[in-house]
Design a protein around this nucleic acid. Structure first.
Lengths: 219, 219
DNA sequence: AACTTTATCAACACTGTGTCGAGTAAGTCA
DNA sequence: TGACTTACTCGACACAGTGTTGATAAAGTT
């Protein structure tokens, strides 16, 4: 027989066990507690004990379900990311079908709403990214996905003559996607200079359209 | 006589005392240690003990000089910010004088180099901003300064007919300045999708110029 | 030489993390 | 049904890090 096999049902990602017994409820309770507490205060001000208490268990028992506080948040972020990936698929389809400009606006809109509907989690993701390599990698994957898509769209628009040439499509895409991330974060966090919720889309769309389709003619 | 006066020479900002004795060297040693360690690892992996050891003192003695690790970094950031403010002044002058487009590129260039020359500190600032309100406020001030300047420039260019109308100048300025922050951070941190050092300026300048001077004509 | 200011650190109290090992309760099957 | 396994629980511990206290020493001041 093979050396080791760890025949547990489903050694799930992020190092969290895969229960099937009543402990399943506990796991859910921990995740719900985390989401709820994140609405109230930043991740750095939430302790493992807070999560355990919120789920009605002791701190050591928490570690039966998750290897760390970070793992809990990572699990939550996973879900957000999956939802957002859905938005991206959708946006790409819209874009491929009709008018790219309308599609682009639609895409940015979907994206914005995907994250604004989970404001607290989005902010926690940004916080975790600072200290946790796994969170960084996960986010990088997400960003890479969008950048690749956007670069394709820009290239297609240039190919059919709708967009003027300019800096490499991928580079443009990186800057635009990162702009969206930052602008949206600032708005969610209600930072000092930040756009009002209802202005975000108009402004981003104008910049995207001008950056992709516009030229800055001399004088 | 007035109730209390705290006649200490200069009750300096950020809660750090104003020494004049030999302890002045220690203070500098702590700051230098911090900058040096930040080149090696993120702020979250540097402890007060590391700073004390690096400065050749014990941990309690550290607290004689600074009230916390954060205060040390805040002091360092203060300097970076002051230098960057100088860049901004300079950029504004260049902009007011000659061709706004050339001035704009010059401004973005100065800004970029101000931060890239202190990469480690810039990254630490971003990290600290996540958990420390003072760092947040300081950064907000910096951003506000640039946004205000950029908004003025955009309005001036629109007024003299060089730039087309569009979204409110301030909103545009916020998005553009935040884009720069994010793109530069990603490059400094060598994030997964990020621009190469030598591509950052070209890409940012193109987007700025198009966003300010370009129009996205139909089709 | 008495007195103040500056500087130093051992020892402590506290908060938070993660682990160990002893337990219980419920299910499996011989 | 009783021995055995698996899922689950938590008290007690060991650690790492923060910030404070109080005693002390070394300069500088009058």
């Amino acid at each position: 027989m093979p050396a080791v096999a760890k025949p547990s049902p489903a050694a799930n990602a992020r190092g969290r066990r895969a229960t099937r017994a009543s402990g399943d409820d506990r796991e859910r309770a921990i995740l719900e507690t985390a989401e709820q507490l994140l609405e109230e205060r930043p991740l750095s001000e939430i302790s493992v004990d807070d999560l355990a208490k919120g789920a009605g268990i002791s701190r050591p028992t928490f570690y039966f379900y998750f290897p760390s506080k970070d793992a809990v948040v990572l699990t939550i972020i996973d879900r957000l990311v999956a939802a957002a990936a859905g938005s991206r698929e959708q946006a790409l389809k819209t874009l491929a079908a009709g008018d790219p400009r309308a599609g682009l606006r639609q895409g940015l809109e979907d994206l914005y709403s995907a994250f604004s509907s989970r404001r607290a989690v989005t902010l926690a993701a940004a916080e975790l990214r600072m200290t946790n390599p796994e969170a960084r990698a996960l986010w990088a994957e997400v960003m890479e996905g969008w950048v690749a898509d956007v670069a394709l769209v820009i290239e297609a628009e240039r190919a059919r003559g709708a967009a003027p040439p300019g800096e490499p499509a991928r580079d443009l895409a990186i800057a635009l996607v990162q702009m969206n991330e930052r602008v949206q974060y600032a708005t969610f966090a209600d930072e000092s200079p930040s756009l009002e919720q209802d202005r975000v889309l108009d402004v981003l769309v104008e910049i995207w359209l001008r950056a992709i389709y516009g030229t800055a003619e001399p004088n």
